[in-house]
Design a protein around this nucleic acid. Sequence first.
DNA 1: CACCAGACTTACAAAAAAGTAAGTACTTCC
DNA 2: GGAAGTACTTACTTTTTTGTAAGTCTGGTG
Lengths: 109, 109
Amino acid sequence: MAVEHPEGTVFVQTTLKVLGGKWKLLILWHLKDGAKRFSELKRLIPEITEKMLIQQLRELEKDEIVNRNVQSDIPPRVEYSFTAYGRSIIPVLEPLCSWGQEHLKRTEC
Amino acid sequence: MAVEHPEGTVFVQTTLKVLGGKWKLLILWHLKDGAKRFSELKRLIPEITEKMLIQQLRELEKDEIVNRNVQSDIPPRVEYSFTAYGRSIIPVLEPLCSWGQEHLKRTEC
DNA sequence: CACCAGACTTACAAAAAAGTAAGTACTTCC
DNA sequence: GGAAGTACTTACTTTTTTGTAAGTCTGGTG
């Protein structure tokens, strides 16, 4: 009989708490290939509202997954990027994306 | 300059649509080590309500991720298990769980 | 014949997440 | 001095998701 790992439940729930919701994984997906400005993210994810974008970025910042970098330009430019720790999410992100790709193929044909 | 993959967005969103929400990944986590009856799942995830459990199982069934197997016992027993296709989610589930574990370690100390 | 188990089902309510729309602050350009 | 760009902020509404509580059906068992 397989050994049960009750903690597995807790671990999955933890990830869900930190990365769950409609936007976070999407935002992180775009930060994967380098730092992005607020307005760039808005352009890359056109359906997101500014409110949601900031709200989610703030939460990711609080969880030390992304850095917020204010450049003292005029007008001010703010860049968001993965923290070193945040990069540990990439191995989660990638299979998740591939699965979506396969699932799309499967369902649209 | 990095090539942009606009589809990545769509793929991530697809996965989110199919596996998003509070319970699905958790249910799948438990099915990973073999078929489980409705009541077993309830016991393994005590915080879930029967309504949510069935609702999510039905959606997973519709998406061909889990099988529903009625045994003609009395009282009736219904077993849920991964479909062959559903098993393709395991490589998504595992990094997700490991990440949660690391994140927990990091935040609770 | 009342009661139990098991797997649901339903109507309704509450909570959480997301969206709308408008406004702020700063500064440069016309 | 008005418009425009950038990065927000706020009050409020809507939508979506989740939860509560009770009921259904079936066929044993005491």
